[in-house]
Amino acid sequence: MPRPVPAAPAAERVEAAGVSLRGVGRSFSTAGGTHDVLAGVDVDVAPGSTVALLGASGSGKSTLLRLVAGLDDPTAGTVEVGGEAVRGVGTRTAVVFQEPRLLPWRDLAGNVALGLPLGTSRAEGRAQVLHWLETVGLAGFAGHRPRRVSGGMAQRAALARALVRRPGVLLLDEPFAALDALTRLKMQDLLDDVQRGTGATVLFVTHDVDEALHLADRVLVLGTSEDRTGAHVVRDLAVGPPRPRDRGDAELAHLRVELLELLGVPRTHA
């Protein structure tokens, strides 16, 4: 059965922002000439929604995420967050990477505190850090160094570090790929609970079709076609069942087959 929707205090809600990409391209110069990674990408992500990016390796998923985060600049087109053009890293977004990237000489609380907005008072900052550590299930580990916790706990701390920023858009680049299967499922449920509790917009990259179907309101598949040299959105798939979802939902099984076929994995026939 699906998990119940958690009751989140109003103070935990964030001001979700929409994301818009228009004609976005990203090219890189190589020894053999120009390599177009993305070309003509048009995407709209509604405020408060969760969108997954799927595609083969090298299809530009992480590149697209970096453009939204302001960690890279497009060579064509425009990227906007909350109706404003993205120009460098801003306060509206926060990123969680595949690796936790925690500073080994800081405890978990100290690592989470790195995400606090500038100007946060010491007392408010400590309260926010403890709040998000508790939210991700690490209330009893605030004083632990990264080497003393598991990979899943370290990734929870990385998620708390992003959330303490109170971003309107949360960006995740395969955040659970390095975790064992059971921990990965638990982290998926945690992310789903946090998103529904805060109302933040979430855009995440994954290679896992089941993960995309469990978490996303829409799945965008990146790929190429004969009329463009770079990747673009070849399928925009709405995921019907409301969240939180039952992983055994029959509708998800149907969508899974469709997505796998788009990714080059045909269904088997007896």
Rank of each mutant, 00 (worst) to 15 (best):
M1D: 12
M1P: 12
A8Y: 06
A8S: 09
A11P: 10
R22Y: 11
G23I: 02
G25F: 11
S29P: 14
A31R: 11
G33Q: 11
G33H: 05
G33S: 10
H35P: 14
H35N: 15
H35E: 14
L38S: 10
G40D: 04
D42E: 06
V43P: 00
V45L: 00
S49F: 02
V51I: 00
V51D: 00
L67H: 05
V68R: 09
A69G: 00
A69V: 12
D72E: 10
D73M: 15
T75I: 01
V79D: 00
G83C: 09
G83Q: 06
A85F: 08
R87M: 11
T91E: 15
R92A: 13
A94N: 05
V95I: 06
V96Q: 11
Q98I: 04
Q98H: 05
P100D: 03
L102Y: 01
L103G: 11
W105E: 06
L108M: 13
G110D: 04
P117F: 13
G119F: 12
A123D: 07
R126G: 13
L130N: 09
L133S: 05
L138A: 10
A139I: 07
R148M: 13
V149L: 03
G151H: 03
G151D: 12
L159S: 10
A160E: 10
R165T: 04
R165Q: 02
P167T: 12
G168I: 08
L170K: 00
L171P: 04
L172F: 03
E174M: 02
A178D: 07
D180I: 01
D180K: 03
L191S: 04
V194S: 00
V194A: 11
R196D: 15
T198D: 05
A200C: 10
A200K: 09
V202A: 04
V202N: 14
F204Q: 09
T206C: 07
D208W: 09
V209E: 03
V209F: 10
A216M: 02
D217E: 10
V219D: 05
V219E: 02
V221Y: 08
L222S: 03
T224L: 10
D227W: 12
D227N: 11
R228H: 07
R228Q: 08
A231I: 08
G240E: 12
P244T: 05
R245N: 10
G248H: 13
A250Q: 14
E258I: 09
L260C: 08
E261R: 08
L263S: 01
